[in-house]
Design a binder for these strands. Structure first.
Lengths: 352, 352
DNA sequence: TTGAAAGCGCTAACAG
DNA sequence: CTGTTAGCGCTTTCAA
């Protein structure tokens, strides 16, 4: 009541301490803490008191050791590539992409209420990939969520071989027995085509993503097929790589080769932003002269002038679904690989 | 040599297994694995062999339990706010900001070679903040890196009170005995002023960040002071909030109130991008009619047309320094709080 | 230089 | 419904 005894080491209290204070056994305290029934309500109350007065928090390492669960999952962003130069801009590039933010946000939203946490990892070199696998094998994380940025990414196979629970964002380029969440990219492309046609555009073209990527292929194919259905079997195509600059360059090429183009479907918003720049420099008014449709509905769609009409990918929902699937795989290790496909929707703004 | 015996459960090998194969004790294997000297080279070799043949990887939970180290650190992005609506866009917003990507990238670059990993956490509500503290107390992470987005953020104090090793990005608004890494914002503002003056601009204005934030204050003050030194004691000011939209709106106001403005210093690139839009709509040519200088040198600076002249903040280096400081605090718990201030540099492009 | 043994803090049978 | 008893896999004195 007067002075504090100098505690030599305020080592955090353990189950043992709580048990002593509550006058019960460690096991009982453990039961109360883990919400296992079959504990006398009165004793439960006494334990809760003791927890409060001691300021007890369970030690996760000790718990993990026996439960073989960590409550963490790895959130892996992978590329391909063997070595990667000393000054590889890969990390900045990928985390800087608004894409990643939405994935992180969706994952966190699902994981957090469940007391789980994502550990950020990069897997862009062979060494980094080994590190991820080893991390999982050490039991640092219960499973992995993988966002792959390269068609030749060896990571999916490595995860399968390691027997680690895992879920991919997007279908792997090579068939792999692994769960994934994806978007109906073809439908997205078709949505864009239908809208351009309904706007009366007839001389349309498309700037695609990397065609080695299923998403790149499918957005283009969906667009072409729908245009064909509308009686336009031939659509000029320029392949981009999803960056702002490639969008600008591709649009310049398109303009040079097809100066009369009146509508463009661009496979992501970042490239569409670049395309807008090229169009303006080419003296085109948007959407009067050329209508532009992007893809993703990322934050840049709103930053564009005019604001981008775009095919929305519900990234947060997709990411949450990935987390949900992963937890299911963790609960039930022999679960079969599943895929969940989301439907895109067209968001009409000012560019088309 | 012919067929594989069906292993009932290929439970991962333990130290015990390796010891048996190598014909030594657990303790010796442990020593070899942890690189402790005083082990006979021959035995070392034998152990290494055994590790290889068994495919052993140390179990981190077991190790943590005794070492009291996890090899993880929390990377916390915090706001303020008590509750946060059901559909709080905070997570998307913050992770979508190119800012966050660069921090993550810098942190990862430093941590990875040291075998440590960041766990992503959000702390935007009272509940979430408690979760972070509890996470640290449970020994899930050895310390925390905090990126605060709000001047009234209670997180710094909570961390100090919890006695957790922690390092902040940016000086806390309220004096707090905690280490942080920051930028010489005043110098940055001065750099912008000097450049505008050297360009012959005399009717300059500034769009600031939130003035409740030290960074917002300091960038403005540095700019004003330098302008005063150049003989321009009065500079029109409009306060923005670091978003694209607020940049656009602020510029519109500036244009209405000071139609003859010929130079603007905008406190971040995102707002500068918005300002560019407003200027173009106002019929101004950039940089001929109005020179614009941004701040950060984020990816949007390059996406702007014309490309933004901007004050570069070496985010990746700053983030790496945060990680370095944090590890120092973890190694040496009684270490005094330190601050490290980085110098900004002006990156001249086309907008000024 | 090496081994034996004692835990780290917790959960999970198994009795009672 | 509660307590006793084994460990989980590792590091780390302490002896030898």
């Amino acid at each position: 009541m007067s002075s504090e005894d100098p505690q030599p080491a305020p080592a955090s209290p353990t189950l043992e301490d709580v048990a002593r204070v509550a006058g019960v056994s460690r096991a009982t305290v453990s039961r109360v803490i883990n919400g296992i029934r079959n504990v006398d309500p009165e004793i439960q109350e006494k334990v809760r008191q003791a927890v409060a007065t001691t300021g007890y928090v369970p030690n996760r390492a000790a718990r993990s050791l026996v439960t073989r669960r960590t409550g963490s999952i790895a959130l892996v962003v992978s590329g391909a590539g063997g070595e990667g130069g000393a000054e590889d801009p890969f990390p900045s590039r990928v985390f800087g992409d608004p894409f990643f933010g939405r994935v992180a946000s969706g994952v966190l939203g699902f994981l957090r209420p469940r007391g789980m946490h994502p550990v950020l990892m990069l897997a862009e070199t062979a060494e980094a990939r080994e590190q991820v696998i080893s991390y999982l094998r050490q039991g640092n994380a219960d499973g992995a969520l993988l966002v792959s940025t390269h068609p030749a990414d060896p990571m999916p196979k490595l995860l399968v071989d390691a027997g680690a629970p895992a879920v991919l964002f997007a279908r792997p380029s090579r068939p792999t027995p692994i769960s994934y969440v994806d978007l109906a990219h073809r439908t997205g492309g078709a949505l864009a085509a239908d809208h351009l046609v309904s706007l009366g555009r007839r001389r349309v073209a498309t700037i695609t993503g990397p065609l080695a990527l299923p998403a790149g292929q499918d957005r283009m194919a969906g667009f072409q097929e729908a245009m064909a259905r509308h009686g336009h079997p031939y659509v000029p195509v320029v392949e981009g790589n999803f960056t702002h600059d490639s969008g600008e360059a591709s649009m310049q090429r398109l303009l040079a080769e097809h100066p009369d183009v009146d509508g463009v479907f661009v496979a992501n918003d970042l490239m569409a932003q670049g395309a807008l720049v090229a169009l303006r420099e080419g003296g085109r008014r948007i959407p009067e002269d050329v209508a532009v449709i992007g893809f993703d509905d990322s934050s840049v769609a709103l930053a564009c002038r005019p604001q981008l009409t775009t095919v929305r990918q519900p990234m947060e929902d997709m990411a949450a679904e990935m987390a949900r699937l992963l937890l299911a795989h963790i609960e039930e290790p022999d679960r079969r690989a599943t895929s969940v496909i989301f439907e895109p929707v067209l968001v009409v703004r000012q560019s088309a």
